[in-house]
């Protein structure tokens, strides 16, 4: 966890991360490594270079530009990046005629300055009941003081704040923000810890505990569950999740987020291999999962954002 957070995107007219028209801040860096993550550039805390090699014309301009000597042409005549040496300085980006290189992540502005930027869409927030969503990566894994100041400054200006979190952080980090957060978008992946470790690389113990604390604190919570075929969308897995939710937090509002493969290209641009074995649950399958929740007494169950 770095001292100054890194932000890889500030998305205005964000409409899937809380009510109304919002601006969502995506912080870079996450404690989990979900196998289906559609923002692989959000996992590492440091800036990274994304390269679309499929469009590389092999002109070699980037090779000369790189101060680290981290680029060379491969056997196919395309620029190849040595990621151990790349510092994501971006010198090569402006020299690429194909426009196939970009840097993901830059140091966040001071909270005071960032708030001014986020306030630019205030008229839209007020018209639509929207606000600012802090997301990631994992926003709660960023420098604690920074996030607390950001939330408090936003609240002081009358902006409603939502936090999108995986929950895998010390409870104190959540607790500290409670007064300045209006909605918690809380992601859960699976009830079974063995499955959870296999899919995300981490235990779900702290995640479920924090969810329980959060519910007891009286905070507004919407649970969000990615549904990824064939790993967590079978009925046994769904039923276990429903049971645990009922046990820990009761019938909270739920969003079911069907997996999509839109992030696969970004894996390749990071020289990583995307998972090809996941698929989008079928519509009828999604409907029956939603019915399962409804049958269990959940009243607010939506598919998608």
């Amino acid at each position: 966890m770095g001292a100054t957070p890194t932000i890889f995107n500030i998305q205005r007219f964000s409409t899937h991360d809380g009510p109304g028209i919002r601006t969502t801040v995506f912080f870079k860096g996450c404690p989990l490594r979900c196998a289906w993550c559609h923002n692989p550039e959000s996992q590492s805390y440091a800036p990274e270079l994304l390269v679309d090699s499929s469009r590389c014309a092999g002109c070699g301009m980037c090779i000369d530009a790189c101060p680290e000597g981290a680029i060379a042409l491969d056997d196919g005549g395309r620029a190849r990046l040595d990621r151990d040496r790349c510092r994501a300085c971006g010198e090569c980006v402006d020299l690429c005629a194909q426009g196939c290189r970009e840097v993901a992540g830059e140091p966040a502005a001071e909270p005071r300055e960032l708030v001014e930027q986020l306030l630019r869409d205030r008229s839209f927030f007020e018209r639509s009941g929207g606000g600012v969503t802090l997301s990631g990566g994992e926003c709660l894994a960023q420098e604690e003081g920074y996030l607390a100041e950001l939330c408090s400054r936003l609240h002081a200006r009358g902006i409603r704040v939502a936090i999108d979190t995986c929950g895998d952080v010390p409870w104190e980090r959540i607790e500290r923000l409670l007064p300045d957060v209006d909605l918690w978008l809380y992601d859960i992946k699976a009830a079974d810890d063995v499955l959870h470790r296999r899919l995300t690389g981490s235990s779900n113990m702290r995640i479920w505990d924090n969810l329980g604390h959060l519910a007891r604190s009286g905070a507004a919570v919407r649970v969000r569950m990615p549904l990824v075929s064939p790993v967590n969308d079978d009925m046994a897995c769904i039923d276990a999740t429903i049971r645990l939710l009922l046990e820990r937090v009761g019938t909270v509002p739920v969003s079911l987020l069907p997996y999509h493969a839109a992030g696969n290209g970004k894996y390749r641009r990071l020289d990583r291999v995307p998972r090809e074995d996941f698929r989008v649950p079928a519509d009828d399958e999604l409907a029956s999962i939603r019915d399962r929740f409804l049958d269990a007494g959940f009243s607010d169950v939506e598919i998608g954002g």
Partner: peptide
């Protein structure tokens, strides 16, 4: 969806507010 319709309506409204 319904939410998309609301967002479109609010986008228009806000442009006109401005």
């Amino acid at each position: 969806g319904e939410k998309g319709l609301d967002n479109l309506a609010d986008l228009v409204r806000t442009y006109f507010d401005l």
